[in-house]
């Protein structure tokens, strides 16, 4: 299991625990944990509703691929630590990360 923190839209921090060996994405875990992540496109880096900001732990993640970078670049509220949760596998690299939700959850 991997432990990390999620900061919700109200600014509250919640601990989250996820299995590292099931091939799940961070988006899937956030959705399953009932955070307001729409994941409209189902994980194809197309809708950016799973946009998150890594306030801690970004440097431990594998680099974003072109599709993810292209999508992030179009977002009006993107920051340097922006990632798409659907493109991040749950793994040890997420241990102790702090993740702020930035997507459009309506």
């Amino acid at each position: 299991m991997v432990q990390f923190s999620v900061i919700d839209e109200q600014g509250m921090t919640h601990p989250v625990e996820a299995p590292a060996d099931m091939g799940l994405s961070l988006m899937e875990i956030l959705k399953a944990s009932d955070y307001p992540v729409l994941a409209t496109c189902g994980g194809m880096a197309l809708c950016a509703t799973c946009h998150v900001e890594f306030t801690e732990g970004l440097e431990r993640l594998p680099e974003a691929n072109d599709a993810e970078l292209d999508m992030i670049d179009t977002l009006p509220n993107a920051v340097n630590a922006s990632r798409l949760a659907c493109q991040i596998r749950i793994g040890e690299h997420l241990q102790n990360a702090v993740i702020r939700l930035r997507g459009d959850g309506n």
Binding site: T40, A48, T49, L75, P76
Partner: peptide, 8 residues
């Protein structure tokens, strides 16, 4: 003219 792509 904000051109920030399309979202579904």
């Amino acid at each position: 003219i904000p051109l920030f792509g399309l979202s579904p």
